[in-house]
Amino acid sequence: MMAVERGEASPKGSRKPSSQTSENAQKVLAAFIDRRKPYIWMLNAFGFERRVIVDVQGISAVISGGASGLGLSAARRLATRGVFVVLLDLPASRGEDMARELGAAARFVPGDVRDEAAVEEAVAAAAAVAPLRVAVACAGTATAHKTVGRNGPAPIDGFADTLTINVVGTFNLIRLAAAEMAKLDPVGGERGVVVATASIAAYDGQRGQAAYAAAKGGIVAMTLPVARDLAPLKIRMMTVAPGIFDTPILDGLTPAQVATLREQVPHPARLGAADEFAALVEHIVDNPMLNGETIRIDAAVRLGTK
């Protein structure tokens, strides 16, 4: 989240001395190197301007699927910035342990992301501590069935569950968190941001991934209309589509299967780290021009047929 403070503009048609240009370039470089600075220098049509980064310390966030994997990494990132994080995850998850690990900056709320009452409780828990300005939807599930396999047609219950948990659960968090954000006064020109988690399977679905690809594709498809819905409220909506990441979802695979997945990644030729996903979420929170779009974070991998 940023506010803009105008710097001195160059007179129209004039050029700044080379020493001034060098000085401005040094300011840009220094601001990017030293991330502790509360601003960055950016070049626009009129010269350089200083964009002040609004400190997120003292706000709260709700993160579904926050007890493990991508969600937990996002929670850790935000907590280190002074954000109070509410981890919403299933009762059987390690949410209580993870909240205890994060300390006073976190609380665990058990519940199913499809359950309106559970999500409302998580939103209320966050808002009771500090203004809720961030929501990150990481809860999801995957199932693998060919449309017609050796045992006949794919089970419809598995298909429906995958869509409900991923699509309905994500939208449930977005709508309830955004309704709470709408009550707040804008800071730096905005009230908050919601971030959803899709997958490159939304674009490169493999055999057996009809349900998962449809679910993640649904999240990608809702991103722009939700952003447009929330724009008058000064709330942003973004989606991240991770590639092959080292998360608990790979725990069911053999080492050989994981190695096969790793070999598909061009560069860097490895599995993604959950903290790299979290770093992108953190940047989305900080950058007010990111809205209504899905960002792939996949090291240039494009999934094959199988």
Rank of each mutant, 00 (worst) to 15 (best):
A99C: 08
R100D: 13
R100H: 13
L102A: 06
G103D: 11
A105D: 12
A105V: 09
A105T: 12
A106Y: 01
A106W: 01
P110R: 10
V113E: 02
A117T: 14
V119A: 02
E120Y: 02
E121I: 01
E121V: 08
A122R: 00
A124I: 05
A124Q: 15
A125H: 07
A127R: 06
V129R: 13
V129H: 11
P131F: 08
V134R: 01
V134W: 05
A135G: 11
G140F: 02
T141N: 10
A142F: 05
H145L: 03
H145E: 15
K146T: 13
T147C: 10
T147F: 14
V148L: 13
V148Y: 13
R150I: 12
A154L: 15
P155F: 12
I156P: 00
A160D: 14
D161V: 10
L163I: 11
T164F: 06
I165V: 15
I165S: 01
V168E: 13
V168N: 11
T170Y: 02
F171T: 09
N172V: 08
N172F: 05
I174S: 04
R175A: 14
A177V: 07
A178C: 15
A178D: 10
E180S: 14
M181D: 08
L184A: 15
P186C: 10
V187Y: 07
V187K: 09
G188L: 10
G189Q: 10
G192P: 04
G192R: 05
V193C: 09
V195S: 03
V195Q: 04
A196Q: 12
A198F: 04
I200W: 10
A201N: 13
Y203F: 15
Y203W: 15
R207M: 12
Q209W: 08
A210Q: 04
Y212A: 05
A213P: 00
A215I: 05
K216V: 03
G217P: 02
G217R: 05
